[in-house]
C-alpha cells in the first residue's frame, strides 16, 4: 500500500482509539506526573484507604454489578473479593470498549462473525493488559478511570492469590513503558494484536492475515516517523506479543484457581464467556 494510505489508516485508528478509550496515555501520564493540578488521584495504600476509596468510587457512579455477593460485603475479610468484583465490572466495560474499537478496524466487521468472536475472545485480555501499561509506574497503578492511584505495595500485601495477580503486569508494564509509545502508536499496536491470524479455531485465516499485514505496515511506518531515533522499535514491539501471551495464560490460570478456592466469588458472565476454554 502507498504511504499515504497507511498514514490515513493510522489516523483513522487513532481517532477510533480516542473515541472509545476514555483514559488515554497522555491523560494518564499527566495524572501520574502531577500535572493535573487540584485533580490529584485518591491514593489507596492500605485497607483503611481502600474502604475510603470504595466510597469514593461509589460516589463517582462507577457501574456496579448485580452479581456481587451481598452477604459478605461488610466483612473485612471480603475486602479483596469486593475489590475484585469492582475490577471485574470495569473489565467488562473495557471489553465493550475494545469491541467497539475492533469494529472500527477497516475490514473487521466484514470477517466471518464467528472469527470476529474468536479474535475478541483471544485478543481482548492481551489488549487490556497492554492498555494497563500507561496507567502504571513502578510504584502503582491508576484505576477507576484515573480517579484512584493504588500502590503496588498494597496490591502485594493482599492475601493469596489476589497478591499474585498484578505483580506480573507491573513487571511487564515497567519494561513496556521504556519503549515510550504514544497513544497514536498504541492504537495501531492494539489493532495488530486483535488481528492475530493464529488464534485457535479461526475459520478463515487469510483475510485476517491480510488485514493484519496492512496494519503492520502502517505501524512500521508510524514508528519510523514518530520515533526516528529509536532503533529496532518495531521489532522490539513485536517481541512483546510473545511475553503477552504468557501473561494472559498465567492470568487465566489464576482466575480459574480463584473460582475454585473462593466460595463467594462469581465471575462476570462476559468474562466467564471469554475465559472458558481459553488456554
Amino acid at each position: 500500500p502507498e504511504a499515504a494510505d497507511l498514514r490515513a489508516l493510522s489516523r483513522h485508528l487513532y481517532e477510533a482509539y480516542l473515541k472509545y478509550f476514555p483514559l488515554t496515555k497522555a491523560k494518564a501520564r499527566a495524572i501520574l506526573s502531577g500535572k493535573t493540578g487540584d485533580n490529584a488521584p485518591f491514593v489507596i495504600h492500605d485497607m483503611k484507604s481502600l474502604m475510603e476509596g470504595e466510597q469514593f468510587i461509589n460516589c463517582k457512579q462507577i457501574p456496579t454489578q448485580e452479581h456481587q455477593p451481598q452477604t459478605s460485603c461488610n466483612i473485612l475479610d471480603a475486602v479483596e473479593l469486593r475489590f475484585f468484583h469492582s475490577c471485574q465490572s470495569r473489565s467488562a466495560e473495557a471489553v465493550r470498549e475494545v469491541t467497539e474499537f475492533a469494529k472500527s478496524i477497516p475490514g473487521f466487521i466484514n470477517l466471518d462473525l464467528n472469527d470476529q468472536v474468536t479474535l475478541l475472545k483471544y485478543g481482548v485480555i492481551e489488549v487490556l493488559i497492554i492498555m494497563m501499561a500507561p496507567l502504571m509506574n513502578k510504584d502503582g497503578t491508576l484505576i477507576a478511570y484515573g480517579q484512584i492511584f493504588m500502590t503496588r505495595e498494597f496490591l502485594k500485601s493482599l492475601r493469596k492469590p489476589f497478591c499474585q495477580m498484578m505483580e506480573p503486569k507491573f513487571e511487564f508494564s515497567v519494561k513496556f513503558n521504556t519503549l515510550e509509545l504514544d497513544d497514536s502508536d498504541m492504537a495501531l499496536f492494539l489493532a495488530v494484536i486483535i488481528l492475530s491470524g493464529d488464534r485457535p479455531g479461526l475459520l478463515n485465516v487469510k483475510p485476517i492475515e491480510q488485514l493484519q499485514e496492512t496494519v503492520l505496515h502502517a505501524l512500521e511506518l508510524q514508528l519510523k516517523l514518530n520515533h526516528p531515533d529509536s532503533l529496532q522499535l518495531f521489532a522490539k514491539l513485536l517481541q512483546k506479543m510473545t511475553d503477552l501471551r504468557q501473561i494472559v495464560t498465567d492470568h487465566v490460570h489464576l482466575i480459574q484457581l480463584l473460582k475454585k478456592t473462593e466460595v463467594d466469588m462469581c465471575l462476570h458472565p462476559l468474562l466467564q464467556e471469554i475465559m472458558k476454554d481459553l488456554y
Binding site: P63, A92, E93, V95, R96, T99, K103, I109, L113, N114, Q116, V117, L120, K121, P269, L270, E273, I274, K276
Partner: peptide
C-alpha cells in the same frame, strides 16, 4: 454461538452498557 452470546451481542450492537 450460545457459548459466546454476549460477545455476539456486543459485536452486533445489541448490548448496551446498562446490560453489562
Amino acid at each position: 454461538k450460545e457459548k459466546h452470546k454476549i460477545l455476539h451481542q456486543l459485536l452486533q450492537n445489541s448490548t448496551s452498557p446498562v446490560d453489562l
